[in-house]
Amino acid sequence: MVGGILWATGNICVVPIVKTIGLGLGLCVWSSVQLLVGWANGRFGLLGVEAEIPNNLVMNYVGVSISLVSTVLYAFVKPDIKPITMDITIPAPVAEWADSKGIRMAQPKVVELNDMEGNPPVKPSPGELFLERWSPAKKKIIGIILSAFSGVMYAVQFIPARYTQEHDNGASQNSIDYVFAHYCGIYLTSTLYFIIYALFRRNRPKVFHQVIVPGIVSGLMWGVGTASWFIANKALSDPVSFPIVSTMSMGISLLIGIVAFKEIKGRRNISIVVFAMMFTIGGAVVTGLSKT
């Protein structure tokens, strides 16, 4: 459950990260930190767990380096996402004129305002946070700090389960046995954070009903993926699994952005994605071979 608490604590930073530095840079920072911290902890045993030394240490170092380069390359991709628009109709003074028979006619004029980039906002966005009004430099600093913090939390979420397996007599050595407790920790911690948020909002939390079902589906997909990650850590060891998982998820996300959402366009962006994917796949292969 402690591992779930750590993950949920890192995950609550995602929305502020997206609001300050965007998903692309935020994902790059926390994936890089997650890769390095998870790999280093597994390789050197930094947090009370036993060090896991790959069979081919040089190949493992090379694979981690290649994977890290791929995460940096992904940061240069610039998604083509249109800003949110809000059309507002404002009645103007009534215009009067006379028709051909001399009858006076009246019709209100309509002024439409678009809250587009570069124009002053007509009304606040329903999801606007106070930190969005900070200066660009301040937002970037805070966003990078939060991304690094999230990366650390994501990397150490597996440590409590590993510590239990290595130090408690009779503890199950099957990693899947720890998944339910891990998810219970996430559920309880997320509930606590939501209660704190609701109290902070004076019982008027902003809940967007359009994302409830997609959020549940996303959570189910994440649950299957993280359960698989538990198994991969046990089968491959952290120094091997972390570089693979941390980089492949970024590559797949960008490919979905190209194919499904059409948010990544242009020869330059697609070339960067293809080039970075070559590093991602190469790093994953070399890191995986370091186990043999």
Rank of each mutant, 00 (worst) to 15 (best):
E263S: 10
G251E: 06
S246M: 12
K265L: 12
T247H: 03
E263G: 03
V224N: 08
F242G: 00
V224R: 05
L236V: 09
V245H: 01
V224I: 15
S241F: 02
L254N: 07
I258S: 04
K262E: 09
P239H: 09
P239C: 08
I264V: 15
W229L: 12
G223R: 06
I258K: 03
L236I: 10
V259Q: 09
S237E: 05
G223E: 10
S228L: 13
M221K: 00
T247E: 04
S228I: 07
W229G: 02
P239E: 07
W229K: 00
I256N: 07
S246I: 00
L254G: 01
L220T: 06
V240A: 10
K234T: 10
I231T: 09
I244L: 13
E263D: 12
M221W: 12
S246L: 05
M248H: 00
S228P: 00
L255Y: 12
V259I: 15
S253W: 06
P239L: 08
S249L: 05
G257M: 05
K234M: 11
L255Q: 02
I264G: 01
S237T: 15
K234I: 03
V259P: 03
S253A: 15
L254S: 06
V259D: 11
I252M: 14
G257K: 04
A232S: 15
N233A: 12
L255K: 01
T226Y: 07
S237D: 10
V224H: 04
T226W: 03
G257Y: 02
L220Y: 03
K265G: 00
S253D: 08
K265Y: 00
D238Q: 15
A232P: 03
V240C: 09
F261V: 02
D238S: 12
W222A: 10
G257T: 05
L236S: 09
